[in-house]
């Protein structure tokens, strides 16, 4: 570390911070008869779920689950969904499960946060698709709805727990070429795969259209982060390093502050390397988000 400059190998870690927000999250446990249909199910339910700027939820796969980790002994996945409020999730999730999972062959959906204080209805609404032929099964303290469908039964838990999470942790990497930047971004996302409690909801876990708050156009809440756009260098006050021609952002949502911090640290270590000139983070001057993740402090531990 030199003054305020820290080097991780050849990569400079900028003395800045990521600004993250308090959001509500829930966890769905999805099971299917095999991995093929599991893949189909999670692709469908996590679609159009990158950012709450324009989507009803930020949603992605947290972990793939072994058969001995799921409630019904089938292959499964845990999916985390983040929303602005409990009400927003209560609206978004039954729609997504109804349209994307009930329709997918062999799926069943369970509550991944049964101990959470707040619970929102899931099967309680979806059961009505059964048109009176639905049945419920109570095992222990949990109620499961069984909706008859053309391949048997769609089993869905009555409710799903909601808890407080942290969304918007991020890093922004800058590289000499797009190939190097893509490779670094993929390394960063792969480093998150074994970590529980975090998701990267954007395509492949990577964002190319990092945004700033507001716009010159009325009504736009966010617009392109021009300071990081290489084609605008010379026209705007750039934050790109000399020689950087490509940047990507990795956005991380997590179940708590510690999970996001761990994930950001892992991504920084994985992304740094030859041709990656700098790693910084996106913030809004510290005025909007409750959680500030200072990159240099993350790397101290």
């Amino acid at each position: 570390m030199m003054g305020h400059i820290m080097l991780l190998g050849p990569t400079e870690i900028v003395d800045t911070f990521a600004e993250a927000f308090r959001m509500r999250y829930l966890r769905l446990i999805i099971t299917t008869v095999d991995e093929y249909w599991l893949d189909a199910a999670v692709r469908e339910v996590t679609g159009y779920g990158s950012s709450v700027i324009g989507c009803d939820a930020e949603i992605a796969v947290e972990q793939l689950l072994d058969t001995n980790e799921t409630p019904d002994g089938r292959p499964g996945a845990s999916v985390l969904a983040f929303g602005f409020s409990v009400d927003a999730l209560a609206k978004a999730i039954p729609n997504r499960v109804g349209q994307c999972l009930m329709t997918c062959p062999t799926t069943a959906v369970y509550n991944g946060l049964p101990e959470a204080e707040e619970q929102i209805p899931l099967g309680k609404f979806l059961r009505f698709f059964g048109d009176g032929f639905q049945k419920s099964k109570v095992l222990g303290e949990r109620r499961y709805w069984r909706v008859p469908v053309m391949d048997g039964e769609f089993v869905v838990e009555e409710q799903v727990g909601v808890a407080k999470g942290v969304a918007g942790g991020n890093i922004i990497l800058q590289a000499i070429t797009s190939e190097i930047a893509l490779s670094a971004a993929r390394r960063a996302v792969e480093a998150l795969a074994p970590l529980k409690g975090v998701i990267t909801p954007f395509p492949g876990g990577v964002v190319r259209s990092g945004s700033k708050v507001g716009s010159k156009y009325k009504g736009m809440v966010a617009s392109t982060n021009d300071a990081f756009c290489p084609t605008l260098r010379g026209r705007v006050e750039t934050k790109l390093f000399e020689g950087a021609n490509c940047g990507y952002e990795i956005v991380i949502d997590g179940i708590d502050e510690q999970a996001v911090a761990r994930a950001m640290t892992a991504t920084i270590h994985a992304a740094a390397g030859e041709g990656v000139l700098a790693i910084s983070a996106g913030n809004y001057g510290g005025k909007l988000g409750k959680f500030h993740f200072h990159l240099l402090e993350l790397l101290k531990d």
């Binding site: 099971t31 019904d72 002994g73 089938r74 099964k137 095992l139 222990g140 048997g152 039964e153 089993v155």
Partner: peptide, 17 residues
């Protein structure tokens, strides 16, 4: 014939208790 998830769900519950 059926292979409803509710059967393994019941089995797992009985195992858990």
């Amino acid at each position: 014939k059926t292979a409803s998830p509710v059967l393994p769900l019941t089995g797992r519950h009985l195992k858990s208790v």
